[in-house]
């Protein structure tokens, strides 16, 4: 087996998990993984020679995700927190726990802020590495993290969004 296939196969599960955290949807995550690997495939020679191909693939994925977001923003209106549809099944059973609520509200956080939260609190990357992945300064990373958390806290604190007791 060629080294390239071995590398992408080994990293694919972790990349798909990252894609789920970035997009919030299984289908979108699979599409994102596919487009990431299509991009990476164009540089397969370089990838094989890299010391940390996983970091490279992660960077490609995050930037692909943000780039897709920019493309779609021109065509699709953003969804405000108030208009996020409630999952029907959860409405009926009333069993939303705080994780469900958090996951739902994450969908309303701007992409770059969400990407920072994912890289910081899911991938456990230091801010310097997040800055490299996103191509921004560490200060921007910190402000994005702060705003993302603040937005989540504001949404989750409103009484109507709290899970039923």
């Amino acid at each position: 087996m060629e080294a390239y296939e071995e590398i992408v196969t080994a990293h694919a599960p972790a990349l798909l998990r990252l894609a789920v955290m970035l997009t919030g949807q299984r289908q979108d995550a699979e599409d994102l993984l596919q487009s990431t690997l299509l991009k990476a495939e164009r540089h397969r020679g370089r990838l094989v020679d890299m010391g940390a191909p996983g970091a490279y693939l992660r960077r490609v994925m995050v930037n692909e995700h943000l780039s897709l977001g920019r493309t779609r923003l021109r065509r699709v209106a953003t969804v405000s927190a108030e208009r996020v549809p409630e999952p029907a099944a959860e409405d009926v059973t009333g069993v939303l726990d705080q994780r469900d609520e958090m996951w739902r509200r994450l969908a309303t956080v701007p992409r770059q802020q969400r990407a920072v939260l994912v890289l910081r609190y899911y991938e456990d990357l230091p801010d310097a590495e997040i800055a490299r992945v996103l191509g921004v300064s560490e200060g921007t990373v910190r402000s994005n993290a702060f705003r993302g958390l603040a937005a989540l806290r504001a949404q989750l604190s409103s009484p109507e969004s709290l899970p039923p007791r």
Binding site: E5, V8, T9, L16, L33, L37
Partner: peptide, 15 residues
């Protein structure tokens, strides 16, 4: 809690 949305075999298949 959402890691389960990422199926390892789907990832392999895509890769």
């Amino acid at each position: 809690s959402r890691e389960d949305l990422a199926d390892v075999y789907t990832a392999h298949r895509i890769a």
